[in-house]
Write a protein that binds this DNA or RNA. Structure first.
Lengths: 162, 162
DNA sequence: TCCATAGGTTCTTTTTTGGAACCTTGATAC
DNA sequence: GTATCAAGGTTCCAAAAAAGAACCTATGGA
């Protein structure tokens, strides 16, 4: 499979990664969630080349994850903001943050802490089951083909992890 | 910032992405969570080139996300399995699945469904606050520097998203 | 002897990045 | 009026990474 065919796979992970799965995209989105909106701010913070930044922002707008909103005329300037589709990526960033805090932090601890406005406490994100509310780990989830499953000769049925 | 310097950033997202943030790594891990363990199985399922697959598996072993376990002698063969550090990436994959199911599915619905063994129901993963147990969305989280924060001239303080 | 299998390595070509310079529109300084 | 600056790009070239195919090694079987 070529990278460009990813979005046609019968797999939500593959389809999601076809949008956010390349080198800089999730870092651009991290900055979006931190409130960064302008081209030169992304450039300065990320140290990304302008060429690549242009490309990633265009792609994210095209996919409906960001939208361009004018913030002045004469000369016209536009900034990039998260759409609802983009805001829905928050759990992905939170999951990465959580893993990074746990497994990649140095001895000084987490560089950034998150406070849940609802309860006012410093929080960790926890993944729970939508049905029973219990935290879910890898071994507690079984996968099965769903309605969108279209088996192809090259597909391998998912099996359970041991 | 060059891509290779990502792991030195004072940001858990950047550090996490320095391990799993390139083109094929998260797809390799998806297959690990589905029970795939052998080189040729990854190759057939992903359609990735052998060169890139070798490189990604080596990197994941080096980072402690996978480990090699022998499954036969004469000739010696080894398979790749998730370590605890690797299993902890499950929420990242779940978050991507959830977003993909919601925003990238075609009209046939999700290709794969997940069943929570604990309650037996078809589940969606939900991100909740570790302190109060309520679901958290992007707008309900405030970020602040933590103990590992080491401000540098080029750093920009996180601001709240609007 | 010939073929197959698992797990790679090597080679060449095509795409992506990195890095720097240049362009455009208007605002402001001299 | 000329010079400079800012934001948000585009263009060009070199370096790095990925795609695609062929080759290598150890063993086992027909």
């Amino acid at each position: 499979m070529r990278w460009e065919e990813l979005d046609q796979q019968p797999c939500s992970v593959a389809r999601a990664l076809s949008v956010v799965g390349d080198r800089w995209t999730l870092l651009v989105l991290r900055d979006c969630f931190l409130g960064v909106r302008r081209f030169d701010a992304f450039e300065k913070r990320l140290g990304i080349t302008r060429h690549v930044l242009t490309d990633r922002l265009k792609k994210l707008v095209h996919e409906g994850v960001l939208y361009k909103a004018p913030y002045q005329d004469k000369p016209r300037r536009e900034e990039y903001r998260l759409t609802d589709k983009g805001l829905d990526l928050h759990p992905v960033l939170m999951a990465l943050v959580s893993w990074g805090d746990h497994h990649m932090a140095d001895d000084r601890g987490a560089p950034i802490v998150r406070i849940h406005k609802g309860c006012g406490e410093v929080m960790r994100p926890v993944m729970v089951c939508s049905e029973c509310g219990e935290p879910v780990s890898a071994r507690e989830v079984k996968v099965e083909p769903g309605t969108g499953w279209a088996a192809q000769a090259t597909d391998v049925m998912p099996i359970e992890i041991g």
